[in-house]
Design a protein around this nucleic acid. Structure first.
Lengths: 112, 112
DNA sequence: GCAGATGTACGATGATTGTCGTACAATGAG
DNA sequence: CTCATTGTACGACAATCATCGTACATCTGC
């Protein structure tokens, strides 16, 4: 959690770790928050979502915070379009590095 | 993480959540620490280990802390025998509640 | 009983976290 | 241009966390 090497993505504030550098502890920590788990579940169908298009029990600032944690852990990708920032799951990268992890976590979270 | 209902286990200091009450967020958080992940990996072959029988880069007190976090999340079971406390993975309970989770996490952590 | 071993309890400490409010920047609609 | 929308930046704050040291409790062997 201390040494985070983020790959620049052109658009400021969207840097994310390269697929080969995802850390399991960072990913697990990112997924260990109920709000973030809710976000990931929403994105799990492959859809893109903005901060505002997901109903969450937190304010805008907190939402920004959670999306940043997910991005810096390498769980999601952020794409800027106008004033909107579209978030999507980095499913292929996660699957390549931690096979089956995302699905098992989502299944575990879904059947709560 | 706020409401933790721990089942008493007779021996003080070994209370753990019932199998049906494991929380995915608590489990993920417990697994999101490098030291704890190391502990779980060591226990993953089904063996029992005491605090002292695992070489860890932390002191005794910190070791106690990590084992407690794992126990309260429901990841491990603690059995007292004399002055020693034997720790083992609650693999069947975890498997029943979150199928495949432990194995995928361990595989992800192992191939680091 | 005494000494060693094993582990917990407690308190401290610095770091991180989740949350919020306010202010600001950027884009798009009128 | 002006205004509303979208989201970030920054600062604040209480809570949690990982870590440690010291002290204590419990058992075992002598």
């Amino acid at each position: 959690m201390e040494t985070e090497i983020l790959k620049d993505a052109g658009v400021p504030g969207t840097a994310e770790p390269a697929s080969g550098q995802l850390e399991i502890t960072a990913v697990l920590h990112a997924l260990s928050d109920p709000v973030r788990l809710q976000i990931v579940a929403k994105l799990s169908d492959g859809s893109e979502h903005t901060c505002g298009s997901i109903e969450l029990p937190v304010t805008k600032s907190t939402c920004t915070h959670h999306f940043r944690v997910l991005r810096e852990a390498g769980v999601i990708h952020q794409r800027q379009e106008g004033t909107s920032r579209f978030n999507s799951l980095r499913r292929p990268d996660l699957e390549a590095r931690f096979p089956g992890l995302l699905d098992t976590v989502l299944r575990a979270a879904g059947g709560s």
